[in-house]
Design a protein around this nucleic acid. Sequence first.
DNA 1: TAGGCCATCTGGTCCT
DNA 2: AGGACCAGATGGCCTA
Length: 221
Amino acid sequence: METVYSDMDSSSCDYFMQDDEDSCSSMHASSPSSSIGKPASPASDSQGSCSTDLAQKKRRRGRARNEATVHVVKKNRRVKANDRERNRMHSLNDALETLRTVLPAFPDDSKLTKIETLRFAHNYIWALSETIRIADIEQRQNKSRADAPLLLPNLRVMDAPSPGSDACSWSSSASSSSSSSSSPSYCTSSSSSPAAQNDYGCFQTDVRQYSYHNFVPGMSY
DNA sequence: TAGGCCATCTGGTCCT
DNA sequence: AGGACCAGATGGCCTA
């Protein structure tokens, strides 16, 4: 563990503000905790300096410069790391934003939170794959009945996401009859959330009433 | 005003 | 050694 910032308190942002470029000099002048950069006391060299004293001073000064340089290098490294971390989080947010755009929009237009987006996407993918799987099964079953209409399973959105709600539960009406499928797991955490009772977004997408192409952009059957 | 969400900083750990 | 990733801490903003 690095102890370079041991003299910093937790709100250390202003630390970088106050001595950014000239931390060597400011460190020497103002850092009470560092004895490295302290100028030699007047008493020590007031009486004619011998060669050993000079050598000692040189060593001291050299050491101070080295440690100050190390300090600056580490500080710059920290600043760069912060910058990278910021960019990393921005790209993560961009990816989340892209994910939001491919998820079904809701009348409310309210932006999904990060956790809502992830859970909703998880359940959405699960519902779509269930739909495909069950449609495939039904298609095979209907092969013998050529004139029978192809019925896709009903797809329902339960507890549509709303601000403050973690519930983005999807359920396929046919999924209850299928024992092999596993249901989404992130559906129960927000039963206490008041927003979960808000059913503004609950709607049914029955392919017989609602075009599946409208519901799933870019998806074709 | 409390609680939720978010951005940012920070230090630790792992990987190349 | 340096970068990526992660989790904890902190403070700001917003809403019920």
